[in-house]
């Protein structure tokens, strides 16, 4: 990997849990890498796999989708659907031999500020290790 590579991670966070968790991490003054570009969605199930793909194919080094823990969805069952959709996308990535490491789904609740910081730190570290997204400079993508 190139020296000083700072990955850009696109995060889709559910308004009720993960986004509130990010808020808590901030108000608790927890330190975590500034590499995530957060996008607030009303529910993680609002995220069409195509959104994740768009971010990935347009050069995001990694994509993170954050939702409530299973059973805690504000809309009762949204995150179960998300889980299946992301698993499907992961399966497509595996078949086409694309980087599944650049896809991640995390359950982070509104009370889990420290966990939010931890997930972001780990994910950023991991993305740094695997290097920049090769799609970034490819013309024919």
């Amino acid at each position: 990997m190139s020296e000083g590579f700072e990955p850009r991670i696109v995060g889709f966070f559910c308004k009720w849990c993960t986004y509130a968790g990010a808020d808590l991490a901030g108000t608790s003054r927890l330190q975590y890498p500034p590499n995530v570009l957060p996008i607030r969605v009303m529910c993680s199930s609002r995220v069409d796999p195509v959104f994740l793909l768009t971010a990935y194919l347009r050069g995001a080094d990694a994509v993170l989708i954050g939702g409530c823990h299973p059973g805690d969805c504000h809309y009762i069952e949204g995150n179960y659907y998300t889980r299946r959709r992301v698993a499907l996308l992961k399966n497509i990535f595996e078949t086409l031999k694309l980087d599944t490491e650049r896809l991640r789904l995390s359950w982070i609740s509104a009370s889990e500020g420290p966990r939010f910081a931890k997930v972001i730190t780990e994910y950023t570290e991991n993305t740094k290790k695997i290097g920049p997204n090769p799609a970034k400079n490819k013309i024919f993508i």
């Binding site: 992301v86 992961k90 789904l105 359950w107 609740s109 889990e112």
Partner: peptide, 13 residues
């Protein structure tokens, strides 16, 4: 399996 790494380290409840 897809969510395993997340669920195991989760500190939820």
């Amino acid at each position: 399996t897809m969510c395993k790494d997340i669920l195991e380290t989760g500190e939820h409840k």
